[in-house]
Simulated scan of single mutants.
Amino acid sequence: MEKIKTMLKPKPNPQQLLRDWQRKLRQECRNIERQIRDIQREEKSVQKAIREAAKRNDMGSAKALAKELVRSRKTVNRLYENKAQLNSISMHLGESVAIARTVGHLSKSAEVMKLVNNLMKAPEIAVTMQEFNKEMTKAGVIEEMVSDSIDNALDSEDIEEETEEEIDKVLSELAGETAAQLPEAVRKGKLKQAAQQTSTAEEEAIAEGVDDEDDLEEMRARLARVRS
Rank of each mutant, 00 (worst) to 15 (best):
L106M: 02
S107E: 11
A110S: 08
V112G: 01
M113Q: 14
K114Q: 09
K121R: 13
E124A: 11
A126Q: 09
A126S: 13
V127R: 08
V127K: 09
M129W: 00
E131L: 07
N133R: 14
E135T: 09
M136P: 01
M136D: 03
T137M: 03
T137P: 02
A139I: 02
G140A: 01
G140S: 01
V141W: 04
I142E: 03
M145W: 07
D151F: 10
N152V: 05
N152H: 09
N152M: 11
N152T: 07
D155S: 10
S156F: 13
E157T: 12
E157Q: 13
E157Y: 06
I159H: 08
I159W: 07
I159Q: 09
E160V: 08
E160F: 06
E161I: 12
E161H: 10
T163D: 02
E164R: 12
E164T: 14
E164V: 12
E165A: 14
I167D: 02
L171Y: 02
E173N: 12
E173A: 11
L174Y: 07
A175P: 03
A175T: 01
A175Y: 01
T178I: 13
T178C: 07
A180M: 07
Q181W: 05
L182D: 04
L182M: 15
P183D: 15
A185I: 15
A185K: 15
A185Y: 11
V186G: 06
G189A: 09
G189L: 09
K190T: 05
K192M: 12
Q193D: 14
Q193V: 08
A194I: 01
A194V: 03
A195H: 14
T198C: 04
T200D: 13
A201M: 13
E202Q: 15
E202C: 08
E202D: 13
E202L: 15
E202W: 08
E202V: 04
E203S: 10
A205N: 12
E208T: 14
V210W: 05
V210Y: 06
V210S: 07
D211P: 06
D211T: 15
D212N: 15
E213C: 05
R220G: 03
L223W: 04
L223C: 09
L223H: 05
R225F: 08
V226S: 04
R227T: 03
R227M: 15
S228G: 15
S228A: 14
